[in-house]
């Protein structure tokens, strides 16, 4: 492992300044994620949000069960490790008691859209004033690549080895479309984490989702379409192409709900 040098503490030659460093909200712990996985990117964006809105001292994050189960290792704010799918209920418990804290969940598609769908829908329906950072990579990553509710029709997984059969297992669940009918939702957006441009868009959406909570406008969720090259059996590059070519056709990106005052501006 290479030595970690804090850029801001490093000796910089005269005339040079540090333009990119680890967010203060993130720890130095090396991440366990697989090559080509975008959890690291998404974590960083979460850290940037906490820094940007100066929320380190008042944030309580809720971790999922799944690949991001160790997320609490990577951040410097308080966190609660929820059981599988229950993060929105745990976040509800925190937020209702401490309404001035910034409370978010970080959840994958198995966690949020399979076992935890009831908690997701009801937190949204109640207009629970929390922010959900949702990673949709269409597969159960940590358990070894089983079919998820968001797996595409025809997608090969370890429990759909000939490809997902819609007649037997149904169609993928579109979380943003599903939640957009609920009045308690203040912000909903989906973005593929496939390019610097899209990551900038994701940052913009996440900023809106944070603001949604800070302004008390209800449930906010950003869905990041993410690659899982290891469980998809692809190279990292091919996995990104797969999202841009195939996944976005089923899961169209964009803002679904935006109740911020400057929406559309």
């Amino acid at each position: 492992m290479s030595t970690v040098i804090e850029p801001s503490k490093a000796q910089l030659p005269d005339g040079m300044q540090c333009v990119f460093e680890r967010p203060r909200a993130m720890s130095e712990k090396p991440m366990h994620y697989c090559p080509g996985c975008s959890h690291g990117t998404y974590h960083r964006l979460v850290g940037e949000m906490i820094d940007e809105f100066d929320l380190l001292s008042k944030t309580v994050g809720v971790c999922p069960v799944g690949c991001a189960v160790f997320a609490y290792e990577y951040f410097e704010f308080d966190m609660v490790e929820a059981s599988h799918g229950r993060a929105p209920a745990v976040a509800t418990g925190v937020k209702r008691c401490l309404p001035d804290r910034f409370v978010f969940t970080y959840q994958g598609d198995g966690d949020l859209a399979s076992i935890g769908m009831a908690e997701t829908i009801h937190a949204a329906a109640r207009g629970e004033n929390i922010t959900v950072f949702f990673v949709n990579n269409g597969i159960f990553g940590m358990t070894g690549g089983q079919m998820a509710p968001t797996s595409l029709v025809g997608q090969k997984t370890t429990t759909s080895q000939k490809g997902r059969d819609a007649a037997w297992t149904g169609q993928p669940i579109k979380v943003c479309e599903l939640l957009s009918s609920l009045d308690g939702v203040g912000y909903l957006a989906r973005v593929p984490l496939t390019s610097p441009k899209n990551i900038k868009t994701c940052r913009k959406y996440m900023r809106n989702a944070v603001r949604c909570q800070l302004e008390g406008r209800g449930f906010a969720l950003v869905e990041a379409l993410s690659p899982c090259p290891v469980q998809w059996g692809m190279t990292p590059g091919a996995a990104l192409d797969y999202i841009d070519d195939k996944v976005v056709k089923v899961f169209p990106p964009g803002e679904f709900v935006n109740k911020l005052d400057d929406a559309g501006k």
Binding site: V60, V62, V80, A82, S83, R86, A89, V90, A91, T92, G93, V94, K95, R96, C97, L98, A118, E119, H122
Partner: peptide
């Protein structure tokens, strides 16, 4: 104080978990 009717007992106990973690008598 806080009263909230949850969507299920599964959600109830996890709300209790969150509130207890936050230092409350839940």
């Amino acid at each position: 104080r806080v009263f909230l009717q949850a969507e299920s007992e599964v959600a109830s106990i996890n709300m209790v978990y969150g509130a207890a973690a936050a230092g409350m008598r839940a």
